[in-house]
Amino acid sequence: TTYKLILNGKTLKGETTTEAVDAETAERVFKEYAKKNGVDGEWTYDDATKTFTSTE
């Protein structure tokens, strides 16, 4: 399943996707990605669109 991440950081904005077996796995991948890029925001998830959003 393809999951999408929308980053709305103070210094980094953008989108990326990952293939994962479930939302929990995708969330771990995306949170590590955000951390590596210095984004520490509030997380939301929309199951209908398989989209995570992190907003600082």
Rank of each mutant, 00 (worst) to 15 (best):
T51N: 01
T55C: 06
T49Q: 06
Y33K: 01
K13R: 12
E56W: 09
T16W: 15
A34K: 02
F30E: 00
D47A: 14
K10Q: 11
K50W: 05
V29I: 14
F52Q: 00
E42A: 12
T55L: 07
E56K: 05
F30S: 00
A23T: 09
E19D: 10
K4N: 05
T55N: 08
E15H: 10
I6Q: 04
Y33S: 01
T17N: 06
T1D: 11
F30L: 06
G38K: 06
S54W: 15
K13E: 05
G14N: 11
E42Y: 13
A20T: 05
Y45F: 06
F52K: 00
N8G: 04
K50R: 12
W43Q: 01
T55G: 05
I6W: 04
T17F: 14
K31T: 04
R28V: 08
V21K: 13
Y45G: 00
T11Y: 14
S54P: 03
E56D: 08
K10F: 14
G41N: 03
T53N: 05
E19P: 04
S54T: 15
T11E: 11
E15Q: 10
V29P: 00
D22P: 01
T55R: 07
W43V: 03
L5K: 01
G14C: 15
E15R: 07
N37F: 15
K35L: 13
T49D: 04
A20Y: 02
K13A: 08
D47P: 14
T16A: 12
F30V: 00
S54Y: 13
A20Q: 07
K50H: 11
E19F: 15
R28G: 06
K31P: 00
T17P: 01
T25Y: 06
L12T: 11
V29N: 05
S54K: 03
R28D: 05
E19A: 08
T11I: 11
T55H: 07
G41L: 08
G41K: 02
D47Q: 10
W43A: 01
Y45E: 01
S54C: 15
K35T: 09
A26L: 01
R28P: 02
T16Q: 08
T11P: 03
T53C: 07
V29E: 08
T17I: 09
E19C: 15
K50V: 02
T53Q: 06
W43M: 07
T2Q: 10
N37Q: 13
E27C: 15
